[in-house]
């Protein structure tokens, strides 16, 4: 990052070849590794569900979500070239913050609304109506 700033000074103005683009390390090997992993992680859950190997819900749901989480990490690393050092760590910081918000939004909404549904069951409603 620091020697990069040096370059910008040498070049004189910011519309230079060092626009951060050349910093990103991409390789054919990286893309192919990511693609192979992503393909495997896609085909496996589709095959498990479409072949009927999974009975309904429960552990199957958890397994699908786990595979999805792993695949998202694979995409982030091999396709989005994310690592702790890119952009001086700001990329990772923004991502961590976003992930925290996403987890709160998702788990919070589903958790609360599930319990709200439970408590608004018709049997429950009868009790509420009979209240003085």
């Amino acid at each position: 990052m620091s020697d990069h700033a040096q370059h910008a000074h040498d070049d004189g103005h910011h519309e230079s070849a060092h626009d951060g683009v050349d910093q990103i390390h991409v390789s054919l090997k990286g893309y192919m590794t990511g693609f192979a992993a992503a393909a495997f992680l896609t085909i496996l859950p589709f095959w498990l569900v479409m072949s009927g190997a999974f009975s309904k819900t429960g552990p199957a749901d958890a397994f699908i979500l786990l595979l999805a989480a792993v695949q998202i990490v694979v995409h982030m690393v091999y396709f989005l070239h994310l690592n702790a050092k890119s952009e001086g760590g700001w990329n990772m910081l923004a991502l961590v913050f976003t992930v925290v918000l996403v987890v709160i939004t998702l788990s919070g909404s589903i958790w609360i609304m599930y319990h709200l549904n439970q408590n608004m069951m018709p049997s429950m409603m009868k009790d509420v109506r009979s209240l003085p």
């Binding site: 910008a8 103005h13 910011h14 060092h18 951060g20 952009e87 923004a94 976003t98 939004t105």
Partner: peptide, 24 residues
Amino acid sequence: HHPENATLLGFWLYLMSDCLIFAC
């Protein structure tokens, strides 16, 4: 001088905010 990485970092921040839309 202009921070050279600003565009890519800024775009990444946009993507993160887009991520929040999808989270909702």
